[in-house]
């Protein structure tokens, strides 16, 4: 009797444990299914790891194959084009330096713009080379008429804005792909080059030619992106990785709440990013203030 009672008690206890386990599994399973799955396209693995550790409540997946992804992040324009070609229906958040050269293909897509404003780049040029009077801004020749006019107006406004600071802004309109010959001729007109946020002019294929040509003529280049600084540009204004990741997560969380990505957003937190080795080779002296500002 007692033994039977014990057996029943033991079974009840086992059922209780099994039920509890089942509930726990069910809870976590339901919870997992409730997590937002975000696909990251073209993002380096370090960034994926960083997002996972920073915001673990979102399921960050690098280039996921399944169809259950709810939002895509395109780390650059090539990745965005790949997603469009693959006919992904979910909204896409594109990380790009600027949208002046391309438009978003769909209304429910959005962008996070990390390209530094030209005015800040020109002022950085002056800080890197305090005696620079003629700052050459390399921009694209051959845009459509409206874009060309818009670019010209922007450069004129900018030139007027920095004139009082003793800077003569020299627009250098070059047809892509940039040739060494054109850049060599342009180098005779200016003290220092500033690159615009134009990925057609400044990309991985043109970086080496641009940098080598500039340096053959002992001209420093304020690059359009941190990638150019790593490749050999003397400096750029850049969004700190911290700020960019935070903005990205905020954007995703906003989308989680509202179901909309909203209008493209320019990240407005910039700080100098320097290449002291290049500066030294070109005989440029980076002031302690500038070096301090560039520290993480």
């Amino acid at each position: 009797m007692i033994a039977r009672s014990r057996e029943r008690g033991s079974r009840s206890w086992q059922r209780c444990v099994a039920f509890t386990c089942a509930m726990v599994v069910c809870f976590f399973s339901v919870n997992t299914h409730a997590m937002t799955r975000v696909g990251l396209w073209g993002a380096p693995s370090a960034v994926v790891q960083q997002l996972r550790s920073t915001q673990p409540q979102i399921d960050w997946q690098a280039e996921p194959l399944g169809a259950d992804t709810q939002l895509h992040i395109a780390w650059h324009a090539d990745a965005y084009d790949r997603l469009l070609t693959a006919e992904k229906r979910e909204p896409i958040l594109l990380l790009i330096s600027s949208l002046t050269q391309r438009n978003l293909a769909r209304a429910h897509d959005s962008a996070l713009l990390w390209g530094p404003p030209l005015l800040q780049q020109v002022r950085l040029a002056r800080r890197v080379m305090p005696l620079a009077k003629r700052v050459g801004v390399i921009a694209r020749q051959g845009l459509d008429r409206e874009a060309q006019l818009s670019q010209a107006r922007h450069l004129e406004t900018l030139a007027a804005g920095v004139r009082s600071e003793g800077i003569t802004l020299v627009p250098l309109l070059l047809t892509p792909p940039i040739s060494a010959r054109a850049l060599a001729e342009a180098s005779e007109q200016v003290d220092i080059f500033v690159a615009t946020n134009d990925e057609v002019l400044f990309n991985r294929d043109t970086a080496k030619l641009i940098l080598l040509t500039a340096y053959r003529h002992q001209k420093a280049l304020i690059g359009p992106s941190p990638a150019f600084v790593s490749a050999g540009a003397v400096a750029t204004m850049a969004v700190p990785k911290l700020a960019l990741i935070a903005e990205l997560i905020a954007r995703v969380e906003r989308w989680q709440k509202t179901g909309r990505l909203g209008e493209p957003l320019t990240v407005d937190q910039f700080q100098p990013l320097l290449n002291p080795q290049v500066a030294r080779s070109l005989g440029l002296y980076l002031t302690p203030d500038l070096l301090r500002e560039a520290q993480p």
Binding site: P226, A227, G232
Partner: peptide, 14 residues
């Protein structure tokens, strides 16, 4: 500090 060359598709060699 910020995104490095390889993160934007460069080979990272100066």
């Amino acid at each position: 500090l910020s995104l490095s060359a390889d993160e934007l598709g460069f080979d990272g060699n100066q």
